[in-house]
Amino acid sequence: MAIIRESIDVDRRPEEVYQYVLDAPRMPEWQLSAVSAERLDEGPVGIGTQVRVSRHIGRRVMPLTMEVTEYDPPHSWTMRGIDGPIRARVHGEVEPYDEGRRSHVTIDIDFEGHGLGKVLVPLVVRPQVRKELPRNEQLLKDRLEHTGE
């Protein structure tokens, strides 16, 4: 199946957008399905950083562990699921424009199902994410532009 991709322009500098997006405890502020998120390790964010995210998937809340596999601030990042029946691969890019005062944010998401996840990914997860990702990006934009975060 095809990668789910959405983009949005944010009236904030790429450094600010990148820092906010990769701040694990803030994920529930702009990701509708995220119930909670926490770092599983200490120190600066980088390749190998792990985050436990509890998400609404359909009617259930499922904990999933994500690991940073690409970290190129403030330009791009990739995280991949390392456990559970539904394993996401999320790639994000933040491109500067307007002389670096604004950002064009693109997020790509794809999934791999394991066990029960092989059924859940096409029937529940992909349709949910297709609806949610544009709303998440709008929440990201609103949060960064209107709250001064």
Rank of each mutant, 00 (worst) to 15 (best):
I107N: 01
P85T: 05
R55L: 10
E42V: 09
H104G: 01
V105Y: 00
G43P: 06
L22N: 12
I82F: 11
D108Y: 02
P122R: 02
D11R: 08
L116M: 15
Q138G: 01
V35Y: 13
V35L: 09
E112P: 01
V51K: 10
D72F: 03
D83A: 05
R130I: 02
Y97F: 15
P127G: 13
R5D: 04
V105E: 00
G115M: 14
D72H: 11
I4K: 04
P134C: 13
A37K: 07
G92L: 06
R87T: 04
R101V: 06
R80I: 10
P28V: 08
H104P: 01
E42M: 05
Q50M: 13
E145W: 13
Y71A: 02
V124C: 11
A37W: 03
P28L: 03
G113V: 12
Y18I: 05
R126A: 04
I57H: 12
H146D: 05
E6K: 15
S36K: 12
V124S: 11
I109E: 11
R130E: 10
G58F: 03
E132R: 00
T69H: 09
V129G: 08
E15H: 03
R59L: 07
T49N: 06
L64S: 13
S103N: 01
R126S: 04
A37R: 09
E132W: 00
V129Q: 08
V53R: 06
I109P: 01
V51C: 09
K141W: 03
E112Y: 11
S103G: 01
Y97L: 15
D41R: 12
M66S: 11
M62C: 07
Y97T: 08
E16R: 14
D142T: 13
G100L: 14
D11L: 11
R5K: 15
S33L: 02
P44A: 15
D11P: 00
V61M: 08
R143L: 10
V17E: 00
L32P: 01
E16L: 13
Y18N: 04
S36M: 09
E93N: 06
L64M: 14
V105F: 00
F111W: 05
V125M: 05
K141H: 05
A24F: 11
M79Y: 05
D98Q: 13
L123H: 03
Q19I: 02
R5M: 06
L116G: 10
R52N: 14
V121W: 01
R102C: 02
P85Q: 10
L144N: 00
H56W: 14
W30T: 07
V10D: 00
V68Q: 11
Q138L: 06
Q128N: 09
L116I: 15
T78Y: 09
Q128S: 08
S33Q: 11
L22F: 08
Q19M: 09
G92Q: 10
I4R: 03
H75P: 01
P96F: 15
I8W: 00
L64T: 04
E29I: 11
Y97S: 08
G92E: 07
D110R: 09
R59Y: 03
E149W: 12
E145S: 10
R130G: 05
P122T: 09
G115E: 13
F111Q: 02
R55V: 04
L40P: 07
Q50Y: 04
S33W: 00
R80V: 11
V94D: 02
I3H: 07
K131I: 07
V10H: 00
V17T: 02
D72C: 06
E93F: 03
E93W: 07
I8R: 00
E93D: 06
G117Y: 03
